[in-house]
């Protein structure tokens, strides 16, 4: 079940530093939304608001406004463990656990209470198939995940996230450590997965945003120490061919960033 993610008048602070200023944004279910913008514009911070992992990286974070997943405010008395089960995340560098392929996938279902082996077997197979990895690893489920190639490892991480049936899938520059072929396979996979999940992808590559996303959000900060702002959000094709903001146009034509 994919859910809509809504930011309502969100300000975000790291200590005294305001990182995000009055963000208003609705991310549609079963679509791929890309966050683009130069380094330091706050796009990763916005992504990490959705599973509340900014709080893991920094102390004293503060959020004003509301962030809603399926109309539930996740900054108001929500259980973090079930929130993070509901919101999967894929990181810049593939980070499978130093365990077997099987154990990587079975890991999250286990901690969320699945115990029966046949049930776990089924989840592992289903998740790996969904991540287009099953055929390559079905004979080495018991080998170390670290023996896989970088691209395979990243697809394993995707399979690991979807093993607990999330509603939202966050991807923080998931192909930045991969070669072009592995990147293409991840992009194909993202296209397939959007049928079931709300996908948000932060990317530095505008071509990637243009290739795989349905909508694009462009963030920008006016300089170091200034908060990031959402400059423009809309259908990807429109944003790239006919941006409504001069700043977006300057960025996508490569004049800064």
């Amino acid at each position: 079940m994919a859910s809509e993610v809504k930011f309502e008048k969100v300000d975000f602070y790291y200590g005294a530093f305001k990182a995000i200023d009055s963000l208003q944004l609705t991310i549609l279910a079963r679509k791929v939304s890309a966050f683009i913008g130069p380094s330091g514009c706050g796009k990763s911070t916005v992504l990490r608001m959705v599973n509340r992992t900014n709080e893991l990286v920094a102390e004293r974070t503060r959020l004003e406004g509301r962030v809603l997943i399926a109309d539930e405010n996740i900054y108001d008395g929500v259980d973090l463990f079930s929130l993070r089960k509901k919101v999967g995340m894929v990181f810049q560098r593939p980070n499978p656990f130093p365990k077997t392929v099987y154990e990587n996938i079975a890991w999250a279902p286990r901690i969320h209470g699945v115990k029966r082996t046949d049930e776990l077997d089924e989840i592992v197979e289903k998740s790996l198939k969904r991540a287009a990895l099953w055929d390559q690893v079905k004979n080495k489920l018991k080998s170390s995940a670290l023996s896989l190639s970088g691209g395979q490892q990243q697809r394993l991480c995707i399979a690991r996230s979807i093993a607990v049936n999330p509603e939202v899938l966050l991807m923080d520059e998931p192909t930045s450590a991969l070669d072009p072929r592995a990147t293409a396979r991840i992009e194909d996979l993202v296209e397939e997965l959007k049928a079931d999940y709300t996908i948000v992808i932060v990317t530095h590559s505008m071509q990637q945003a243009a290739r795989i996303s349905d909508s694009t959000a462009f963030f920008l900060s006016e300089g170091a120490g200034r908060p990031g702002r959402l400059i423009e959000f809309g259908e990807t094709e429109r944003v790239f061919t006919n941006p409504s903001s001069r700043l977006t146009e300057k960025y996508i034509t490569g004049r800064f960033g």
């Binding site: 992992t53 893991l56 079930s82 993070r84 999967g88 980070n95 901690i111 969320h112 996230s161």
Partner: peptide
């Protein structure tokens, strides 16, 4: 132990002790 392992685990909804 790389930080990325902890990050992955916590992002999957595990507690600190888990």
């Amino acid at each position: 132990v790389p930080r990325s392992y902890r990050e992955a685990s916590l992002a999957l909804g595990a507690s600190k002790w888990q």
